[in-house]
Write a protein that binds this DNA or RNA. Structure first.
Length: 474
DNA sequence: TAGGCATTGGC
DNA sequence: CCAATGCCT
């Protein structure tokens, strides 16, 4: 008789593409089960918010990086495509698995699917358990004194800091057991995550997807950006943000590792300013979990009657491609198109321009960001767009319309960010780049090929305010 | 350059 | 009663 092999546990990787600080992987090891790393490509199970093309391009590289890390330890990633439940059940059967472990995702469609999968797996006699792998605080962990979910960031974050208790850090396992090929496996390349043609080539000068890339980004941030973060983070002309967003979205680094490594570095108020940004990510997941309709519909139903402009494909396309004639807006949209990322200050500016000056529904902007950002994240995207549009949580006491010229002067004072992304304006003196049409004849002559503004900023602002005022009586 | 805009959640 | 990533006069 041959000795029976160690029973296995499937570790179902999703948006947690790392080996350190991985609760589901640790659970398998702790239970004495041999981990079988599994990835299942099933975008059709994500409802209306299947990952976009930029996100897929990142995911391809991140999965390849995870596979390489696993192979260094004797294991590898087993890749499948199809129905998640059926795949898990069949892989569990063919590998003799006793359990399936994964880390939670909180997107509404995924959460529903996973609840069903857990139930079904348990009915098959398997242990099935989900863990927190992506947040400092589970969305249900914090509540107001009245027992409600938070709707305002500041009290949310105060409560979070009071409850602060991040878990300890876990190294990646040194060695993982080798597994025979599993029936039904496919090659990573067969998932079709990489774009054709390869328009993403320009992305990878700036990004290293995967756990190592995430660690490098964090270290670079701590070494050279953290000490000026509170001011620097608002300056798109300087590279002073952490650029951790895609790494966090794909779970290439745990937020509690970011927080813990930060603890040992930098001035306290700079550290607090950065942690606060991690806090917005936590808040977004909290809000999405408690208000699952917010990716698609207004958080505040009062705005359901807001008079958005008539759909105009040409205006939307001008915005998407960075041809609005408003320099800071075009710079941001072109940065997004070229690199799969946009500086957060500029995200607010382009979003305000779309929803207030063009008065195009925030949903169109959210969709474009979802498709083009490498860090596209349903929770962050929904919160951000609704915050700017004024339809969401953390509402301002007035109808806020960003002035893109003032914002550019304030946060890109020399017009360097504009010049980087809008070459038509490079010949202008620095101060003229923010509003070339106001720069006189000399300015005009230098702006070859750069469009006139597609909308009058002052007029459209007043129109938006008027549309807002019309909501009042209702 | 200080004050107006004028809402809402949470303590 | 405080606070909320802004703009305009």
């Amino acid at each position: 008789m041959t000795p029976s092999p160690t029973p296995t546990a499937l570790v179902w990787f999703r948006d947690d593409l790392r080996l350190r600080d991985h609760p589901a992987l640790q659970a398998a090891l702790k239970a004495g089960l041999a981990p079988v790393p599994v990835y299942i490509h099933a975008p059709h199970e994500e409802g209306a918010w299947a990952p976009g093309a930029a996100s897929d391009a990142w995911r391809h590289r991140s999965l390849a990086a995870l596979d390489a890390e696993l192979r260094q330890r004797g294991s590898r990633l087993h890749v499948f495509a199809g129905e998640s439940l059926a795949t898990l059940a069949s892989v569990a059967a063919s590998t003799g698995a006793a359990a399936v472990f994964w880390n939670r995702r909180h997107e509404p469609a995924i959460d529903q699917r996973d609840t069903r999968i857990r139930r079904e797996l348990r009915q098959l006699g398997l242990r099935a358990e989900a863990f927190n792998g992506s947040l400092l605080f589970e969305p249900w962990q914090l509540e107001t004194r009245a027992g409600d979910p938070f709707r305002v960031f500041t009290p949310f974050w105060k409560a979070a800091l009071q409850a602060w208790n991040p878990p300890g850090l876990q190294p990646a396992p040194d060695h993982l057991p080798t597994m025979d090929p599993v029936p039904g496996e496919v090659a990573l390349a067969a998932l079709g995550l990489q774009p054709v043609p390869r328009w993403d080539n320009t992305f990878w000068d700036e990004w290293i997807p995967g756990e190592q890339g995430a660690a490098l980004a964090l270290q670079a941030f701590i070494d050279s950006k953290l000490h000026t973060y509170s001011e620097g983070r608002d300056r798109p002309d300087r590279a002073l943000t952490s650029r951790l967003s895609p790494h966090l979205h794909f779970g290439e680094i745990a937020p509690w590792r970011v927080a813990t490594q930060l603890d040992a570095a930098g001035p306290p108020d700079e550290r607090a300013a950065f942690l606060r940004q991690l806090g917005w990510r936590e808040f977004a997941h909290h809000v999405l979990r408690h208000f699952p309709h917010t990716p698609d519909d207004n958080f505040n139903p009062r705005f359901d009657d807001f008079q958005w402009a008539q759909p105009d494909a040409a205006l939307l396309r001008a915005w998407q491609r960075g041809n609005t004639g408003v320099p800071i807006v075009d710079a941001g949209m072109r940065e997004l198109w070229t690199t799969g990322w946009m500086h957060n200050r500029v995200r607010m500016i382009v979003a305000s321009f779309l929803t207030k000056n063009l008065r195009i529904h925030w949903r169109h902007g959210a969709r474009w960001f979802h498709d083009t950002l490498v860090d596209a994240d349903l929770a962050n995207n929904a919160l951000g767009w609704q915050w700017v549009a004024g339809t969401g949580v953390d509402a301002a006491p007035y109808f806020r319309v960003f002035n893109p010229v003032l914002q550019a002067r304030k946060f890109d004072p020399q017009g360097e960010y504009i010049a980087r992304w809008v070459p038509e304006l490079r010949g202008l003196p620095a101060r003229a780049r923010h509003a070339p049409r106001e720069a006189g004849a000399a300015g005009l002559a230098a702006t070859q090929g750069y469009p006139h503004p597609i909308v009058d900023l002052g007029e459209s602002r007043n129109d938006a305010l008027a549309a807002f005022a019309r909501l009042k009586g209702r």
